[in-house]
């Protein structure tokens, strides 16, 4: 089981802030493909990966990163702090 978090418009598009996902995905991109195949709202949220960022266990990562040992995955748009 992996904890998946969504922030900002990704959260709004998918309609929930977090969920536990049972997955055998090897990489972030595989997880995105699994989620996108679930329902339209996921496919819409993940339509353009260039406009998304991903963090693995609260560290910025990339879509080709492996998920082995990862407990928390977060998807969000580019950050706008400051």
């Amino acid at each position: 089981m992996i904890e998946v978090l969504y922030f900002a418009w990704v959260r709004e598009r998918i309609g929930l802030p977090r969920e536990r996902v049972q997955t055998t995905a090897a990489t972030v991109a595989d997880l995105v493909a699994e989620l996108s195949a679930r329902e339209e709202r996921y496919a819409l949220a993940f339509a353009d990966l260039a406009s998304l960022r991903v963090a693995l266990d609260q560290e910025l990562s990339s879509f080709d990163a492996p998920l082995a040992g990862v407990r928390e995955v977060a998807f969000f748009p580019p950050m706008t702090g400051g």
Partner: peptide, 13 residues
């Protein structure tokens, strides 16, 4: 400031 803008996980609405 430069790093907080784009590397700290905040999103403004």
């Amino acid at each position: 400031m430069d790093y907080l803008k784009s590397r700290a996980p905040f999103w403004k609405k």
